[in-house]
Design a protein around this nucleic acid. Structure first.
Lengths: 350, 350
DNA sequence: TAATAACATAAAAACGTTTTTTTAAAAGCA
DNA sequence: TGCTTTTAAAAAAACGTTTTTATGTTATTA
């Protein structure tokens, strides 16, 4: 009397409807020729048994999984989470599913993740803001797996990408400070190599100074690898320390908003006012930039849009749609708020 | 002369090594009996051809996909992204892969997502902070698919869950304000029904007042459904508006930190000081709570831990490990910073 | 030494689809 | 009518694994 409660298969439907398996398949996929009458019978059986195609079996046969892998460094970072948000939205709407892998800034982990995902499991891969592991991405690309790189500049223009112009954006930031008459502009970053974003932004900072006929002063450039991980916390610690005993510039540019947050906290705790004593400008326009005190002046990156564009591009490639440009460049914008003002008397020292 | 560049299959390995397919399988899975010698031959062939098992085919046979679905409302929310971070970490370490679905607070979307994931595709499902769609989760549970609910209280204690005690936590917040002598304590939330978190926290607020012999004053309770989406922005707008023309309490409790951020901005823009004029207490201990001005006093939720616990619980269930308790309760903690002080003269009105 | 047990491997079946091939019936045409 | 073409459906093959069953050695035992 007992009955196995297995999910019905296409075979069960075929039996129930009294037709062949292939006919059921044809009905499901609207392929081949099948009369209204048989189609109806099949549809009825499907409904009756509550049948759902097994996507694993389907994938095995079609070699398509409708699954897209996304590898990024840290999902809890506000930049990353907004990019993912855009990706997820597009994937879902286009019938794909998104699988997420975080590398936590670990190069080995990046390799491992790629290997996991590459096991003939995903239809395509998006790399977002990993290391400049050109060889890794190129290996995948050569293998024939559709891949898109987001927020990272590759030399190989054959690899599809979605980017902003980090250098140009950073020049904008420096220009803006110069308009206020700042002559001593510091820079806070966790590195100038490794990732194209950090490198290009640093280059933009340097070029911005040159463009405005300002000398590069090493003493105002803080490069600290340890900021990478707990970005805001560490920036606070490092800058708190830096502030005592160092000459300070009249303004700081930071690699990203989260660094700016830490910097501003450090400045305030040291008795300095922002922007009256020191101006600060961020990068990213993270949501909370607009709730800090002072509201943070920053460079806006279209985070969610970047995610959407990257996902659309990838799926277009997977589905062999016509594509005009595989290297998409997104605009940035200076968001003027309250953290920049005129320089105080030159070069404060506590 | 042309050669198909297909990935090698187990069959190719068998041929290369001169053994049967089943033997190769046994070597790969360390099952059955196979001599060192054959094993070596097989391993050599695997290496030579760069063979990797096709997980789709494996899944079809074993009925295990090593894939876990996670449904949450919004990945860009700092609470959600930290929970996911914890989940991803555990999943990865235990050999699973995480697929992500966002519902954006849309009940229909929630249903759709579940249906997508349920197509015999995932080994288990984690629901985090969705609507009180008891029936939905129970349907899944009854179907036999391992499921864990995080950050949401269900009546049915047979369904595994990982939670905090929202009510008790909120009472702590009210208690703390009362210790400072606050008699008029307001509450800001986007709803008191729908999600258990919002309901329980509201109940905690009410019970906290009672416990401290304070009357519930409707005039100080702001419930605004629109806060749900752009939480901080909307809270700012709504509270900015509320502040003019209303009597204000001497302190506010908020549903979550992101609401507190908006509230504080609104208070400041209205010329009020926090905490000198009005005290504010948040909920979540989002990373940026520690960089606001003033640093936000708040209730800490172990976000990442919640993600880890939920994922571990789910995988334990999937792998039929021994489990002592399927309803895990995580501790909360009051984090004392700078946004709470003694009440100013009673009841400010601008 | 012959029967049996243990071991190592091979062969075949199964998972649930899609795709290709085959078959049978109906329709079209000279 | 008899032959070809078209149409609809069935049957079989294939996808790449794991699992079950079968087979042939070698070792063990009486």
């Amino acid at each position: 009397m007992e009955r196995k409660n297995k999910a019905p298969s296409i075979k069960d439907i075929a039996e129930e409807a009294g037709v062949a398996i292939s006919t059921v398949s044809n009905v499901i996929n609207k392929k081949g020729m099948v009369t209204k009458k048989t189609s109806f019978k099949v549809l009825k059986a499907i409904k009756k048994l509550g049948y759902r195609p097994n996507i694993i079996a389907r994938s095995l046969r079609t070699k398509k999984t409708k699954t897209i892998g996304v590898i990024l460094q840290d999902i809890s970072n506000p930049f990353g989470s907004h990019v993912i948000k855009g990706m997820e939205e597009v994937a879902r709407k286009r019938g794909y599913v998104l699988i997420l892998g975080c590398t936590f800034y670990d190069k080995e982990e990046e390799n491992r993740q790629v290997n996991v995902l590459l096991s003939q499991f995903i239809d395509g891969l998006i790399f977002i803001s990993g290391y400049d592991n050109n060889s890794l991405v190129e290996r995948i690309h050569k293998k024939g797996l559709p891949v898109v790189v987001a927020d990272r500049e590759l030399n190989n223009k054959n690899i599809p990408s979605v980017l902003i112009d980090n250098k140009e954006a950073m020049i904008k930031a420096v220009d803006y400070l110069c308009k206020f008459g700042h002559k001593n502009i510091g820079y806070v970053t966790f590195g100038t190599e490794g990732q194209t974003t950090t490198r290009k932004r640093y280059l933009g900072y340097i070029e911005g100074l040159k463009k405005n006929n300002l000398p590069v002063k090493e003493e105002y450039i803080i490069i600290d690898e340890s900021l990478r991980l707990k970005e805001t916390d560490r920036t606070y610690d490092v800058m708190k320390n830096f502030i005592k005993g160092h000459r300070l510039p009249s303004a700081f540019v930071t690699l990203s908003d989260v660094n700016a947050f830490g910097l501003i906290k450090a400045l305030k705790k040291s008795g300095l006012r922002v922007p009256e004593d020191i101006s600060v400008i961020g990068f990213d326009n993270v949501y909370f930039s607009n709730f800090l005190d002072p509201l943070l002046t920053t460079i806006k990156q279209p985070k969610k849009l970047m995610g959407k564009k990257a996902m659309n591009l990838l799926i277009d490639i997977i589905e062999k749609k016509n594509i005009d440009d595989i290297n998409i460049k997104l605009p940035t914008k200076l968001i003027i708020r309250d953290s920049v003002s005129y320089p105080a008397e030159d070069n404060i020292k506590i």
